[in-house]
Design a protein around this nucleic acid. Sequence first.
DNA 1: CGCACGATGTAGCCTTGGCTACACTTTGCC
DNA 2: GGCAAAGTGTAGCCAAGGCTACATCGTGCG
Lengths: 145, 145
Amino acid sequence: MPAQPQPQPVRPSALQAESLRQTRREHASETAEDYVEAIADLAASLGEARLVDLARRLGVTHVTVNRTLARLQREGFVQVQPYRAIFLTPSGRKLAATCRHRHDVVVAFLRSLGIPGKTAEIDAEGIEHHVSPRTLAAFAKFSAR
Amino acid sequence: MPAQPQPQPVRPSALQAESLRQTRREHASETAEDYVEAIADLAASLGEARLVDLARRLGVTHVTVNRTLARLQREGFVQVQPYRAIFLTPSGRKLAATCRHRHDVVVAFLRSLGIPGKTAEIDAEGIEHHVSPRTLAAFAKFSAR
DNA sequence: CGCACGATGTAGCCTTGGCTACACTTTGCC
DNA sequence: GGCAAAGTGTAGCCAAGGCTACATCGTGCG
C-alpha cells in the first residue's frame, strides 16, 4: 500500500474522541432529564404524575417507565411507592427546572431563526441535551436581541 | 385528590411523545454516522482505515468497534474482511459526505454565534445528529449572512 | 358490596454499546 | 526464517432501554 501519510489535517483524533465521550455522557443523563421534566409538567397540569400518563407522555410502555423510575429513585431524583403517584425529590425538582428553562431557551432560539413551531419543538428535544452552558447563553442572547 | 384538572397548557403529550420517539430514532443512527464519518476521515488522511485507529478516534476499545462494524456491514454501510482495512460502501460514502457537511455547517454556525472553537466542536458533535434539514438550512443561512 | 376494569408490577426476552481477558494473525526486523 | 509485538478476533460480562405476556392491586359503579 503506497500513499504518503498525513496529507491533509483532518479533525484531530483526540479532540473527536473527547467530544464523542462527552456526547455519550450526555446521553446517559438524557433519560433522567426527560423523565423529571415530564413528571414536573404532569404534576403541574394534573395535580399528580401517574405512571400511565408518564408512559403516554414519553411514548413508551408503562413497563419501561416503571423500570426507569427505579433507576431514577436509586439516583435520588424521584420518590416512588408501589401503586402511588410519583414525586420528585428536591434534586429532581431542581433538575426539572433547569431542563425546562434550557428547553424553553432552545425552542425560543430556533423559532427566532425562523423555524416553525412544531419543527422547533422536535429539534429542541434532541438538541437541548447537548447544549453547553456557553452555547445556551449565546442562544439566549441571540433570541433576546 | 382535589385539584381542578387542566390548569395551564403544558407541552401537549402527543407532541412530546412524538418528539422523543424522533430523538430515539436519531440516536439509533448516530453510531452509524459517527463511524462512517471517522472511517472516511481516516481513509483520507492515512490512506486506509484500520481498526485501532478507528477505536482511538472514537474513544472506545477495538472490541466495541469490531462488533459495531459487523452491524454496519449488515446494514450495508461498510465492507469488512478479517484482518483487512475497512472500506465504505457507496451508501456509506454517501452518508459520510452528508454527515461531514452537516457537521461543518453546525460548527460554522456555532462559531458565528461567538462560541469558541473547542466548545463549538464538542457541542456540534452532540447537536448535529438532531438537526432537521429545515434547521440546518437556517443555520447555514445565518452563518453566511 | 363486590367485581370488573384500569393501573401497576413482574418475568423474561431483545438489541445496543460499553468493558476485560484471552486467543489467534500479520508483519517487521534480526 | 522465525519470533515478538502489534493488530485483530472471540467469549462473556454488564447496564440501559425497548418490548410482550401475564399477575396483581385498587376503585368506582351497578
